[in-house]
């Protein structure tokens, strides 16, 4: 290590083994080339579609608010679906989150809790909605059930992670005082997770309102159903009006929920 001090330095490569590194790069390029070459994209049809899209947009202007009664009804239904689903979903999420938190649940219960969350998370709400529409029929009830599942997938998971981060000393103090299990949860854990719980609930309400518009399209009620009907009847001007209102309402609800969550920090 004698002599001149070195004055060049290079960041070590992302993958240390050069053979592996180059095969990853070359492999990725080859795969993309192969996908581009083999995916059946019919450019003729795309061209036709562009024309059709032009007609849709042409028919959509100016947006029509003539049937605003229908629009408002649809929206109120979406709001009801979102509120009901959030309430039910969050209430169910709390016990599931406790089950899925490694530091408070015994191992078999923990696996059960994790399993419930994984199942709730593994399907997109649209797929869940299709199943519930088949199971309980068209309408808002299917929407509520769908969003309850959707809420559990998110709220229970995030809450379980929060429970795993708590200061366990407080739990220890309650145990040392001979407190029974539920009292320990209520005194040592609830106060610690409460701010996150409220923030998650508000976020989920906002998220459910958005999702309720989507699941409505497959028949689960709300503004989404109104939108799907408008498309079905080629009422593109009404559809545009609905879309604009959806965007507006979601902007507002996101603004409000963001403000509230910032306040409770």
């Amino acid at each position: 290590m004698s002599g001149e001090t070195r004055d060049t330095w290079q960041k070590p490569p992302f993958i240390a083994n050069p053979v592996l590194r180059w095969s990853v790069y070359v492999g990725a390029i080859l795969y993309f080339a192969w996908v581009g070459a083999t995916l059946p994209i019919d450019w003729g049809r795309v061209a036709e579609g562009v024309g059709r899209a032009g007609r849709i947009f042409g028919g959509a202007f100016p947006p029509s608010f003539e049937r605003s009664g229908l629009l408002i009804d649809g929206f109120l239904e979406s709001l009801k679906i979102a509120i009901l689903a959030t309430t039910g979903g969050v209430l169910l999420s709390i016990p599931i989150a406790f089950m899925a938190a490694r530091n408070v649940a015994p191992l078999p219960i923990y696996y059960l809790g994790r399993f419930v969350i994984i199942v709730a998370r593994s399907f997109h709400p649209v797929i869940v909605a299709i199943i519930f529409v088949k199971a309980v029929g068209f309408g808002p009830f299917a929407g509520v059930l769908t969003l309850v599942v959707y809420s559990i997938g998110f709220v229970a998971k995030m809450l379980a992670e929060r429970i795993e981060e708590i200061d366990f000393g407080q739990v220890e103090a309650m145990r040392a005082a001979g407190a029974p299990f539920l009292s320990t949860m209520v005194y040592a854990i609830f106060p610690q997770i409460m701010p996150r719980q409220i923030g998650l609930t508000i976020y989920q309400l906002d998220s459910n309102l958005r999702a309720s518009a989507v699941v409505g399209i497959v028949g689960a009620g709300g503004i989404g159903a109104t939108l799907a009907n408008a498309f079905g009847r080629y009422d593109y001007d009404f559809a545009l009006a609905i879309t604009m209102v959806i965007v507006g309402v979601i902007l507002i609800s996101e603004g409000i929920s963001g403000q509230i969550r910032k306040r409770i920090g």
């Binding site: 000393g169 103090a173 005082a177 001979g178 407190a179 029974p180 005194y187 106060p191 610690q192 409460m194």
Partner: peptide, 27 residues
């Protein structure tokens, strides 16, 4: 019947002093 006092206090920060004191009676 065994009281314990901790190095890090282990109080429930977000509860009032009275609630913390009463948590000694949870058993």
């Amino acid at each position: 019947k065994i009281g314990m006092v901790f190095q890090g206090f282990n109080l429930v920060d977000r509860l009032t002093v009275m609630e913390n004191v009463q948590s000694g009676r949870l058993g």
